[in-house]
Computed example of a mutant assay.
Amino acid sequence: MKRRIIGERGLKVSPQDRQISNVLYTMDEALEAFIRAKTAEGVRKGTLTGYHDIFRYFRQWLDEEITNINDITADTIRNYINYLRTERTPYAEDPQRKRTGKGLSVHTINIRIRGLCTLFRFLYNDGIISYNPMQNISQVRDDAHEEVPGLPDKQIDAILASYVDRQFAQWRDKTLIILLLDTGLRIGEALSLTADQVNFKELSITVPSQIAKKRKSREIPISREVAKRLRQLLDETQQYFGEGCKLFMNAYGEDLTDDAFRRRLNRLKRKLNISKLHPHMFRHTFARNYVLNGGDIFTLQRILDHADIQTTRKYVQMDNEHIREQHNKFSPLRNIIKRNGIRV
């Protein structure tokens, strides 16, 4: 008979001190207990949705005969990870993004591993399971690879030139991209903007703590040109949808979502024959260009809302063309040649 071990949350309990119950939890009951606890802790809705999705993907793969959470073993988890690495089709649920190859990226697999680790650690600490199958599971290793790259200048020009300003949706998307390139906002932060968050006089945007990833309010400067476009966009959306609307709305008066914007970028990517295009690339492009234009990395860290300067450094990815440009501009050899009158 499988038994439930109850102990103080977060504390190791010796086998002699554990209270044992005959209660068994189904998969759904265990997940519900986990979600209730995380909701009580104040975890945001988006994070809870992420946990739901991670567990849903896991459930879809599991054998239908496995119904109780205690039936999950470390071997079950390892088999699932191998499935994700070699058999799972990326974006299988999204026809527009579905890929022909097999195997998810290491980054995606590790996100799912971290989610399952959080789930099963909670279940074990709360006594819902007597054994934590994730205890000895490590994240998948990968060869060193470049972080999300920024967009080359030619691609940025092509993207902006592709929009038809006479059409509201395209003019709105272009305004959104220009905003991202000017501020480095996360796509969720940009799409949540309301009129009271934009200070058109002081040329700044406030990201409230309820939206910010670090739960700390911050103010970001914006260029005068961007403020002008946002003012025009706000006037038009308020005219059609009322004063309570957000800046970025779809043609039906609904909030523009990040998924909808990603789908629109995917269509644009195919149209312009660009290998990769998604919202976060504009944030990385801003970070790279900010430094190339003379901005200091510590100010950039504040703007991007990074807790660690090392994270900010990873965002500043420069391709060979930018490296050559910076070398030609700042090489100390030129001053040496000038001082010594060396002819070349």
Rank of each mutant, 00 (worst) to 15 (best):
I77T: 02
Y83E: 09
L84K: 00
L84S: 03
L84V: 11
T86V: 10
T89H: 09
T89D: 00
P90M: 06
P90R: 05
D94N: 12
K98T: 13
T100L: 09
G101R: 15
G101V: 11
G101A: 10
K102L: 12
K102E: 12
L104I: 08
S105R: 04
V106A: 13
I109S: 02
I111F: 06
I111M: 05
R112A: 00
F120P: 01
Y124H: 05
D126G: 06
G127C: 13
G127E: 02
I128T: 06
I128R: 01
I128V: 14
S130E: 06
S130A: 15
Y131Q: 11
Q135K: 11
Q139A: 06
V140C: 11
D142S: 13
D143E: 14
A144Y: 02
A144I: 12
A144P: 07
H145R: 09
V148N: 02
V148A: 05
V148Y: 02
G150N: 07
G150Y: 14
P152C: 10
Q155I: 06
D157T: 15
S162A: 15
D165G: 04
Q167W: 07
Q167N: 11
A169F: 08
Q170S: 09
W171S: 03
D173Q: 05
T175K: 15
I177D: 05
I177N: 07
I178G: 00
L181Y: 09
T183H: 11
G184Q: 04
G184F: 03
G188P: 05
A190L: 03
T194C: 11
A195C: 09
N199K: 06
N199E: 12
N199M: 06
N199D: 15
F200T: 11
K201I: 15
E202R: 14
S204R: 14
I205R: 10
S209H: 06
Q210R: 12
I211T: 12
I211D: 09
